[in-house]
C-alpha cells in the first residue's frame, strides 16, 4: 500500500497543480466559459447532470469494454493463426499493417449500415480500432518463443496444439498484455468515434453524442465533463488490464 501511495502521489500532485493553474488562468484572464470553462465549472456540470451522464458513461463503457473483449479474443486468435505458419505470417502481416492505416472515421458510417444505430456499432468501432495492437503483439510474442523450450516440448512429444497452449501462449502473455494496454486506450477512442456516427440523442445518449450535442448548445463545460468521463473509462480499462497482467505474470521474475 505504501508503495502504491509512493508511486501515485507525484502524478496526482501534478494533476492537482495543473487544475489549480487552469482555474487561476480563467480567473485572471476572465476567459468566457463557452471558450474554456474552469475546472470548477466542469465539476459543477458533472454534479448537476450526474443522472444523465452516468447513463451515458455506462453506454460508452459498455461499448469500449465490449469492443476490447471482442478485440482481445479476435486478436489472440488471429495472431495465433498468423504466427502458426511462416507463409501466413509473410502473407497476412503486411496486409494487417495496411488495414491499420484505414481511417476509422471514414468507415464508421459503414458500421451503421452493417450494425445499425446504437451500441453495437460503437462496440464494433472500438473492436476494430483496438484489435491491431493485440494481433501485432500476439504475433511477436508467439514468434519469440524460446527455441530451447520448443525443443524441450519436442523431446516430450508434445503436439503443435499442446505446444501452443502450454508453451507459446503463456510465453506470449507479456506481449499480449502490452497489446491490451495499448488497446485499452484505443477502445475508448473507437467507441466515442462510433458514437459520433451511430449514437442516439436523448435520455440514453452515450458520451460521444453528449459531446456533439453539448458542443451545438455551446455547453463547453458539459463537453469537458463528457471528455473527463471518457478518460475515466480509459484509465479504468488500462488499470484493469494492468492488474490482469500483474496477476498473469506474477512470480515470473
Amino acid at each position: 500500500m505504501k508503495r502504491v501511495i509512493h508511486s501515485l502521489w507525484p502524478p496526482l500532485a501534478l494533476v492537482a497543480a495543473l487544475l489549480l493553474a487552469w482555474e487561476l488562468l480563467i480567473l485572471v484572464f476572465q476567459i468566457r466559459s463557452f471558450l474554456l470553462p474552469a475546472p470548477s465549472a466542469v465539476l459543477r456540470a458533472l454534479i448537476e447532470n450526474a443522472d444523465s451522464l452516468s447513463r451515458s458513461l455506462g453506454l460508452t463503457a459498455l461499448a469500449a469494454v465490449g469492443g476490447l473483449v471482442v478485440a482481445a479474443i479476435a486478436g489472440t486468435v488471429v495472431g495465433s493463426i498468423v504466427a502458426s505458419s511462416r507463409l501466413l505470417y509473410r502473407g497476412a502481416y503486411p496486409i494487417a499493417t495496411l488495414l491499420q492505416m484505414v481511417p476509422l472515421v471514414a468507415i464508421a458510417p459503414l458500421l451503421v449500415i452493417w450494425f445499425g444505430y446504437g451500441v453495437k456499432s460503437a462496440l464494433a468501432s472500438a473492436a476494430i480500432v483496438s484489435v491491431f495492437p493485440i494481433i501485432a503483439n500476439t504475433v511477436d510474442g508467439l514468434r519469440s518463443t524460446d527455441p530451447n523450450l520448443r525443443e524441450l516440448f519436442r523431446l516430450y512429444g508434445a503436439s503443435r496444439s499442446t505446444t501452443w497452449w502450454k508453451l507459446a501462449l503463456p510465453w506470449a502473455v507479456p506481449n499480449i498484455v502490452t497489446g491490451l494496454r495499448i488497446a485499452s486506450g484505443l477502445a475508448v477512442i473507437g467507441a466515442i468515434v462510433g458514437e459520433f456516427v451511430s449514437g442516439y440523442a436523448g435520455a440514453d445518449a452515450p458520451l460521444g453524442v453528449v459531446v456533439l450535442s453539448s458542443m451545438r448548445e455551446a455547453r463547453t463545460d458539459l463537453v469537458f465533463a463528457a471528455v473527463a468521463l471518457g478518460a475515466l473509462v480509459g484509465f479504468t480499462l488500462f488499470g484493469a488490464v494492468s492488474v490482469l497482467g500483474w496477476l498473469l505474470m506474477r512470480g515470473r521474475g
Partner: peptide
C-alpha cells in the same frame, strides 16, 4: 518454464503424456 513453479515444471513430461 518461468510461469510454472518447481512442482509444475517437474511434472511437465507426465502432463504432456
Amino acid at each position: 518454464l518461468p510461469w510454472r513453479n518447481a512442482m509444475d515444471n517437474v511434472t511437465l513430461p507426465l502432463e504432456l503424456a
